Amino acid sequence: MQLFKTLVLTAGLGFALAASAQWQWVDKDGNKVFSDRAPPSDIPDKNILRRPGGNRPAPPPVAVDAAATPAAPQAKGTDPALEEKKKLAEEAEAAKKKAEEARIAAARAENCTRSRQAKASFDSGLRIARTNAQGEREILDDAARAAETKRLQEIIAADCR
């Protein structure tokens, strides 16, 4: 008998918990509606009386006149530490850019020197031999010498300014 009373009490509490997970709102005709599902989207928030968990809807925000509230004080000046960091970052970036330009200029000067030396060799009239992809040595003919001389002249024109 004691077990039966405990089961009935547990079932009753279970039904009470299920009932507390209900929505309650006032429909467009003014009738209170209870449901386990959310109200339709055409029901305004002000007509929702209860949500599951007993949370009431938040009150609508009150419009505040912007002229009536004082504006937040504007920070005058700047943060010196931030300005110093910004300045150091800009200087580091400028130094990095200058170093890159110096590296490119040195590479161009090296290309210019090598191209002029190679062109001098081609202009001397000596036979020029190269190693092909198979590792065999081949002598350049007049067409290949002319093409290589033209390529070297383009490199000189681009890098020797």
Rank of each mutant, 00 (worst) to 15 (best):
Q2M: 09
L3Y: 01
T10S: 04
A11C: 12
G12A: 14
L13K: 09
F15D: 14
A16Q: 12
A18L: 13
A19F: 10
S20T: 12
A21Q: 15
A21T: 04
Q24E: 05
W25M: 06
V33W: 05
R37P: 00
P39T: 04
P40T: 06
P40L: 07
D42M: 05
I43C: 00
P44D: 01
D45A: 10
N47L: 08
L49A: 08
L49N: 02
R50P: 03
R51K: 14
R51E: 12
P52W: 07
P52M: 08
G54V: 06
R56L: 09
R56F: 07
P59M: 12
P61N: 10
V62I: 14
A63C: 04
A63P: 07
V64D: 02
D65E: 06
D65V: 11
A66L: 10
A68L: 08
A68P: 00
P70R: 15
P70V: 15
Q74E: 13
Q74K: 14
Q74C: 01
Q74S: 09
K76M: 11
T78M: 11
D79V: 03
P80I: 07
L82K: 12
L82G: 15
K85C: 08
L88W: 05
A89H: 03
E90D: 09
A92P: 00
E93G: 05
E93W: 10
A94G: 00
K96G: 06
K97H: 08
K98I: 06
A99V: 05
A99W: 06
E100Q: 09
A102W: 04
R103F: 01
C112A: 00
S115V: 03
K119T: 04
S121E: 13
A129K: 15
R130I: 12
Q134L: 05
Q134V: 04
Q134P: 01
G135C: 02
R137Y: 01
R145T: 04
A146C: 10
T149C: 05
K150G: 02
K150W: 00
K150D: 13
L152A: 03
I156S: 00
